[in-house]
C-alpha cells in the first residue's frame, strides 16, 4: 500500500515537473506561437474532445494498434517457442527473423500501402510486422534461458518431452513473452503514427499531418500529448494486468 502511494506520488511529481518545464520553456525560452504553453494545449484538447474529433482520431489509432498488436503476438509467440525449442526450426527461420527485423516497419509503409491500400489493411499489417519480430526474439531467448536444472528435475521426476514443453519450458518463458509484448506495444505507437502521417484518412498521425497544413500548432501538440498519455496508459494497463492475473510471471525488466 505504502509502495503504491509512493509510486503514485512519484508519478505526480514527475509529471508536474514535466509540465512545469514545458511551461517555463514555452513562456520564457522560446516564446512563440510555434511552441504553445501547456495551458493553451489543454484548452485546445478540451475543445477537440467536445466536438468529438479527438475521440475519433484516437480511437482510430488505438483500434489499429490493438488488432495489429494482438495479431503480431498470436503469430510471434508460437513461432518464438518453436525457434527456441527446436534447432532445425531455428536454422530454418532465423534467416527470416534476423534479416527482416533490421528492416523497420516505417521503411515498409510505402510497400504496405501499395499492397493493402490506404485503408485499415496496411496499418494493421505494419503493426503486426513491428510486433512480431520483437515477440519472436524475446520468446526464443526466454526458451533458451530456462535453467537446465528445471528441465533435468522434470526428467528425473518422470516427465516426457511434451510435458516438459507445456509444464516447464512454456511457463518458464512467459515472463520473456510478456516483456517482448511490452516492447512491441511501444513500437506499435511509433509505427502507427508514421504510417498515418504518410497514408491514412484518420488517426492521430493524420491529425498531426492535417494540422501542419493549416499551421494549427496547438492541435499538433494535443495529438502529441494524447499519444504520450495513451502509450503510458497502455503500458501501465499491460503491467497491471500481468501483476493482477499472472503475478508469478512478472516480465523481466
Amino acid at each position: 500500500m505504502r509502495a503504491a502511494v509512493n509510486g503514485v506520488g512519484g508519478y505526480l511529481v514527475g509529471f508536474a515537473s514535466l509540465f512545469l518545464i514545458w511551461h517555463m520553456a514555452s513562456t520564457w525560452l522560446l516564446s512563440s506561437v510555434l511552441f504553445p504553453t501547456p495551458w493553451k494545449v489543454f484548452l485546445k484538447a478540451i475543445e477537440l474532445a467536445q466536438d468529438g474529433t479527438l475521440w475519433e482520431q484516437a480511437s482510430a489509432s488505438l483500434g489499429r494498434i490493438a488488432s495489429g498488436f494482438a495479431g503480431g503476438s498470436l503469430i510471434g509467440i508460437p513461432v518464438g517457442l518453436a525457434i527456441g525449442s527446436f534447432r532445425p526450426v531455428r536454422r530454418l527461420l532465423e534467416p527470416y527473423t534476423e534479416f527482416l527485423r533490421f528492416i523497420p516497419a516505417t521503411a515498409l509503409i510505402t510497400v504496405a500501402v501499395i499492397w493493402f491500400g490506404i485503408g485499415e489493411g496496411s496499418k494493421i499489417f505494419l503493426i503486426i510486422y513491428t510486433t512480431v519480430f520483437i515477440v519472436i526474439i524475446n520468446t526464443a531467448a526466454g526458451v533458451s534461458a530456462v535453467a537446465p536444472n528445471k528441465i533435468r528435475a522434470a526428467r528425473s521426476l518422470g516427465a516426457g518431452p511434451g510435458q516438459i514443453f507445456f509444464f516447464v519450458a512454456l511457463p518458464a518463458t512467459v515472463p520473456y513473452i510478456l516483456t517482448g509484448m511490452r516492447l512491441a506495444m511501444a513500437n506499435s505507437f511509433v509505427t502507427i503514427v508514421a504510417a498515418e502521417l504518410v497514408a491514412a484518412n484518420n488517426g492521430l498521425g493524420r491529425m498531426i499531418w492535417d494540422s501542419r497544413m493549416y499551421m494549427l500548432v496547438d492541435q499538433i501538440f494535443v495529438a502529441l500529448l494524447v499519444l504520450g498519455l495513451l502509450g503510458f496508459t497502455a503500458d501501465r494497463l499491460f503491467r497491471w494486468g500481468i501483476y493482477t492475473f499472472a503475478g508469478r510471471f512478472s516480465p523481466v525488466t
Binding site: 536444472n149 528435475a153 508469478r248
Partner: peptide, 9 residues
Amino acid sequence: QGDDSLYGW
C-alpha cells in the same frame, strides 16, 4: 545443489 530447479510459478 542450489534452488534453480524449483518451479517459480
